[in-house]
Nucleic acid binder design. Sequence first.
DNA 1: AGTAATCAAGTAACCGATTACTTGACAATC
DNA 2: GATTGTCAAGTAATCGGTTACTTGATTACT
Lengths: 346, 346
Amino acid sequence: MNVTVKDVARVAGVSTATVSRALRGFQTVDPVIRAAVQQAAERLNYVGSPAAAALSTGRAGSIGVITPFVNRMAFQRMLSGIETAMRGTDMDLLLYCTGDPSDPHPVPPRKRLARRVEGFIVLSLAMHSPDVEEISKLNMPVASFGEHGPWGASVQLDDRAGAVVATEHLIGLGHTRIALIHGRDAHDPGVLEYQRHLGFNEAMARAGLPVDPTLVLPGDFTIAGGAYAMAQLLDGDRPPTAVFAFSDEMAYGAIRTMRERGLAPGSDVAVIGFDGHETSSLLDLTTITVPFEEIGATTARKLLEEIEGRSGETADVTVLPTQLTVRSSTLGGGATGNLVSSLRSG
Amino acid sequence: MNVTVKDVARVAGVSTATVSRALRGFQTVDPVIRAAVQQAAERLNYVGSPAAAALSTGRAGSIGVITPFVNRMAFQRMLSGIETAMRGTDMDLLLYCTGDPSDPHPVPPRKRLARRVEGFIVLSLAMHSPDVEEISKLNMPVASFGEHGPWGASVQLDDRAGAVVATEHLIGLGHTRIALIHGRDAHDPGVLEYQRHLGFNEAMARAGLPVDPTLVLPGDFTIAGGAYAMAQLLDGDRPPTAVFAFSDEMAYGAIRTMRERGLAPGSDVAVIGFDGHETSSLLDLTTITVPFEEIGATTARKLLEEIEGRSGETADVTVLPTQLTVRSSTLGGGATGNLVSSLRSG
DNA sequence: AGTAATCAAGTAACCGATTACTTGACAATC
DNA sequence: GATTGTCAAGTAATCGGTTACTTGATTACT
């Protein structure tokens, strides 16, 4: 069977307690004995059982990441940030994908992760999701990105300001018929994109421009969804002169549809995205750049602080700013022109 | 403290053994008692301790994914496939990122994951990586993508054939000065890209074309790396007429550099990638499409089979095919308007 | 010298679920 | 009526570390 502390203790000629103390680096162990224990462990190829340690100490030694999607660029960038922040920590990372927010889960996250981890990073969950209630019921450390939930810390994006900046950018260029490609439930508070919707409406209202409801369409946050929405917009009676997509991916789709119809982003219809993925620079897409890596890293750090019981060192809510990155998809002119200017929004 | 089986047993008026049997769905429990136990568990909001269960049964209830990088599109797509395959399973997913293959890890993967998981999915690790030896030493179920390692099952891509097809596509268009942007160690067997390198050389040799070593540059599998490599190529004495990049991301970078210099992919220099990411369709990039989602899902299924002891049901090595997707980055014309006209010849 | 303080190391009681083994009740068979 | 078989349910050992508590030895101090 597996090598256990007992085996190491026997080989090193000490008790199991001493083995544990020696390997965990306690100061109350004679250096000579410590070396002997380490040698014995090495020789036996000993690896402690995390399950036993977890059971004994009550600490799982891992954190869970809960997200509704794994196949979106934003998630990848946040995960990358989380991974960076977790480096050097001895915490492991568990991934739990809730899938479509409306889907019921075969195993609810509570039963699934509850006592397997010491805390959760919750990414982009809609606040009215049943999962949110489930998670908060657990009464465990949580750090989330998105709306501020009924738990500890959260990292938020200044979504509203970003949407205002994006909309004002289009208005400033003289556009009045501005279409909106949102995710799913633009009118549902508690959903991430709601704040963006508010920002859009606010900017339009301030400029005295009407929001044409026929120009507001869902795009499901995917390329295909964005492409379909754009097709609908172009097929409408009075197509828009500018489109604001709530994600870069949807903007990509919109651009694809335009190209298929021989239209050029920028000169024919202005397109602005929201995310600032690296690939957007290649498509010359004007976008609201979001620091997803930083979001991930900050969320992870907050959770670790909470777990270590030193929460409160940083604010419970951190709001990160977005940044407007202007490219030719809203300026028109040279398709290869890569004019880039940046403005802070936050 | 936490609610345990004891609490449930007390409330339900039975022993802990019966609680365990009832909740695990054993058939030898009176339906009436089972219902009582379930009710009690529900009322107490009972969630079993995975650590205790793992310790008792010896089964961790989770698998680990080991990969050197999390911030590449290929990884994201494989992870998505893995996640899909794991749905409905009661296995959890642990993520372990080794980081740069040459980096030493703060905590070696063996100590880190050894007894925390029931098996590993190993993605794209170079075979000479010290991690590979570490992992195989554990003598645990492993399913990997990449070279066939010293362990159970593996999923492989027909890299060589893909590279041959890509190269022959360029040769067929009349190109003779074909540059190669590879990852890091093109000459290092045991690295994923080695097979692609063989395929490239093979196709060139078959066509009687020389491989100019000054046209073979590393691009680190990143956009920035590809952009830099392309700049070097264009700055050379005799720039290539076609470029084969070992990843779409590097091809994106190459295209970016070309655009910055007013060159059009396809008409000025042909560019072909390798990956087939969704975004490549937007850039009109010809590429070798790789079924990464399927790779992830297949690898996960193989591992689950191995864990359940029914390995052998499928072949130990599954080789998945690639597919050539032709777009205007090798044909010229396309989105920017020019039709395919004359092909360069050397 | 005698007593107290200090400290390394051992003993054993946990942590919480699982399950081999045992018990006891009731039914079936001789 | 006595004996055996069946089966639900209880008892308690077990998984492998961790750590409060105990022990025994050495050092410090009156």
